[in-house]
Computed example of a mutant assay.
Amino acid sequence: MICPFCNLWDGYWRQYRINTETAIQNALQRVPGQVLRVEMDVEDGLLVYEIHIRTTNGMVYEVTIDANTGEILEVDRQDD
């Protein structure tokens, strides 16, 4: 079966303006530490990077970055 949304999503994903490395560098400027994982997601119709970082004191933060502008939208501490 052919995915009816594949062409739509392919075009949408290509529209982001910053690359993963830029998003990671922006996140590490706000929350220094070790990057655990990077995901792309759509939140409220906006393409974002979600970057999970472990700090030197062991806390884990999720930094949400606008994939179009590189702006940090949110920083959340993750509870275990």
Rank of each mutant, 00 (worst) to 15 (best):
I53T: 07
D76P: 03
D44H: 04
E43P: 03
H52M: 08
M40Y: 10
V63M: 01
M40L: 15
I65A: 00
A23N: 03
Y12D: 11
Q29K: 09
V75M: 03
Q25R: 07
N26G: 04
L46G: 03
V38G: 08
I72D: 01
M40F: 12
D80V: 13
G58W: 03
Q78W: 08
M59E: 10
L8K: 12
G58M: 06
Q78P: 09
L73I: 11
T20W: 04
C3V: 10
I18Y: 01
R54F: 05
T64Q: 03
E39N: 15
Q34W: 09
V31L: 07
L28E: 07
N68M: 12
I53Y: 02
L73Q: 05
V38C: 10
W13H: 11
D10E: 15
A27T: 04
R14F: 09
G45R: 04
R14W: 10
L8V: 15
A67C: 04
C6H: 09
C3I: 08
N26T: 07
Y49H: 01
N57T: 11
V63W: 00
A67W: 00
T20Y: 05
I2N: 13
Y49A: 01
F5R: 07
D80P: 14
N26R: 05
R54L: 08
D44R: 02
L36K: 12
T56A: 13
R14P: 03
M59D: 11
D80Y: 09
T55C: 06
T64G: 02
I2Y: 12
E21N: 14
L47V: 10
I18P: 01
G45F: 04
T56I: 11
E62T: 12
D79F: 13
V63H: 00
T69C: 00
P32F: 05
H52R: 07
D80W: 09
G11V: 06
N19S: 06
T56Y: 06
I53M: 04
L73K: 05
D79L: 12
R54E: 15
R30D: 13
Y12W: 12
V60Y: 02
T20F: 06
G58P: 07
T69M: 00
D66A: 01
R77E: 15
I51N: 00
L46D: 03
G33S: 11
D44T: 02
T56D: 14
M59S: 08
L36H: 10
R37D: 15
M59A: 11
V42Q: 06
I2T: 15
G33K: 05
M1P: 13
E21Y: 09
E21W: 08
T56G: 09
W9E: 15
I24S: 02
N19W: 04
I24C: 03
G45D: 08
I51F: 04
Q78T: 14
N57F: 06
A67Y: 00
D41E: 15
R14S: 15
I65E: 00
